[in-house]
Write a protein that binds this DNA or RNA. Structure first.
Lengths: 337, 337
DNA sequence: CTGTTAGCGCATTCAA
DNA sequence: TTGAATGCGCTAACAG
């Protein structure tokens, strides 16, 4: 077992350390912040005292004195699926480089979103918010009045800065690829109103049709989860929709639909092509491999953290959308060999 | 576009609000905390002033005064794959219920882990740490000397509390299931030294053999990622190992190995059975479906958050491991129809 | 190179 | 029901 680790003792403050080391609190602060020059001898005395007392500075006191939290807030809808997790990893990594703590709020688990973000604004210097319908625009505006804000995967609005991955162009390319396989009854599966991302993917879908003098069908408005995909697949199999190709708003949807169709005896892509968006891990494992679009999600998170830091440092918000390039990943679910 | 959202104004403090409302700061504090009784008229004056000034309290000042951060720290290795994400969601959800902020540290992105957690201890009341080899025991002990700590997916050590999902019994059951299919050259793939979780799964593997009077083979020590699984699969195909079944330490490993074997023409489970651990999404989609073990990951995260809160509230650490039950999920990769 | 001192913004006694 | 005063622990001038 080993001996019990010493328990947390509350006591030690900068005063007790100073006293223990026989110096002033200013000196303690100096050696701990490495700010000014301190004689090596005193430095050691302080370090020893810190160690002996198990001193842990009180972040709140420092924040109050320096008038910075040295923390970034991040508001995400949830974390299921690889997309948000990857985004968060990118954000955290960059924040770490900038010596900023990360305070996370997931809106999915909140009954009172407004109170949660208001509370968040209380303890961070700036906040990144994911731009989905799960986080209403007026909440973002409310935040903006308190702290610097950047919207992730959204569009610049009312002077609120945004960062995003490219959607329209890649969606146009992807839809064009499917159409060029000769498919003529292509359905867009996903709700363009669920957020700027899906809206732009749908816009690309429409544009690809227009490019070829075709009319795009109305989008099938379903949410972006496995369950919604399965429900749609049932409706499709029941004959409610007619299609020889499906362009799904994300991979989760595409995968659950594709699998359901296959389980029902349909041939993908023979009978019907299916493509997605995100390039999640599963998309490489299924047969046929899912044709999709890869986003630089990690970089997107990192960019958000970088921009927050620059905004805190006094840089003005950017008016233009900062867009990261995406990449079409062609496998075989689209009809390619 | 809409009109620009008002920018963050730094000014407002409890003093400016008090002045604006014509009351004392004590009254402002009272209405904002809802603590004491305040006359409805004054209450409204204060609320109006708060609104007009766009007042956001400074969390650091509050923390300093109340001597609590009202925040929990969470230290995780990374977030790829559904396991940690789900854990984090459970943790965050429970923390939210308890009105605690969540400060996240991912060790994967840190060059100096010790500095990162030391810094973390500065701004939270208590810390949950994932108990893998990625986070050394002495780091945990160091933390323990500063703040209440609970180790997730670990074992109680030196008076440090732990919460975990059940591993040994389910592993014994899973390995037994495979052996009862008549497989006799079963390999455990994963490094028992990578953490208590894998160690216990391996122990169950060994126990299942012992139950049947068999000898368990030495574990194949590989890390828990897709890439490591693919590398192992190549070695297996090259004849470096001989096996008619693989019990993998997690699903990521199992999936990448299974797919690699299939791509090389091997029949799963005909030629070789493959089972995993975690029940990730992909495990339902692959063919054959992956036999695995489902953990209550969300609940595990929630339990950690609950315990942190109780420790902060003065409850003593528990000596015994708090273990959540797991569930064997039988699909067909094990040899079942 | 080091010590003294004055806030940082809030919660909270204690009086009134 | 309200206000005045004090201190939470730290940083950062300013003096020496």
């Amino acid at each position: 077992m080993g001996k019990p680790a010493p328990e947390a003792k509350p006591g030690a403050t900068i005063y007790s350390v100073a006293e223990h080391a026989g110096v002033s609190i200013a000196t303690v602060s100096r050696v701990l912040q490495g700010a000014a020059v301190v004689a090596e001898a005193t430095r050691q005395k302080v370090l020893t005292a810190v160690d002996e007392l198990g001193y842990t500075p009180l972040g709140a006191a420092r924040s109050l004195a320096v008038r910075h939290h040295e923390a970034h807030g991040l508001v995400l809808p949830e974390l299921s699926g690889p997309y948000y997790a990857e985004l968060l990893m990118g954000f955290e990594a960059r924040a770490a480089e900038l010596d900023q703590s990360v305070v996370l709020v997931l809106t999915g688990s909140r009954t009172d979103l407004v109170a949660a973000v208001r509370q968040l604004a209380t303890r961070v210097d700036a906040i990144a918010v994911f731009g989905s319908a799960a986080i209403p625009a007026d909440v973002v505006r409310m935040l903006r009045a308190k702290k610097p804000v950047v919207v992730i995967a959204g569009e610049p609005h009312d002077g609120i800065e945004a960062v995003a991955a490219e959607n329209l162009g890649s969606a146009r390319e992807l839809a064009g690829h499917v159409l060029d396989h000769g498919r003529r009854r292509v359905l867009f599966v996903g709700d363009p109103d669920s957020g700027p991302d899906v809206r732009n993917r749908h816009a690309g879908f429409v544009a690809a049709h227009r490019d070829r003098g075709l009319d795009a069908a109305e989008p099938v408005r379903v949410a972006l989860s496995e369950a919604d995909g399965a429900a749609f697949a049932r409706r499709l199999l029941a004959g409610e929709h007619e299609a020889d190709a499906l362009m799904c708003a994300n991979d989760e949807l595409a995968l659950s639909i594709m699998t359901a169709l296959q389980d029902a005896g349909r041939d993908v892509p023979g009978d019907i092509a299916v493509v997605g968006w995100d390039d999640v891990m599963t998309s490489r494992y299924v047969r046929p491999g899912l044709t999709t679009v890869r986003q630089p999600v990690h970089e997107l998170g990192a960019l958000a953290a970088s921009r927050l830091h620059e905004l805190v440092s006094g840089e003005p918000p950017r008016e233009d959308a900062q867009t990261l390039p995406t990449q079409l990943v062609v496998r075989s679910s689209c009809g390619c060999a």
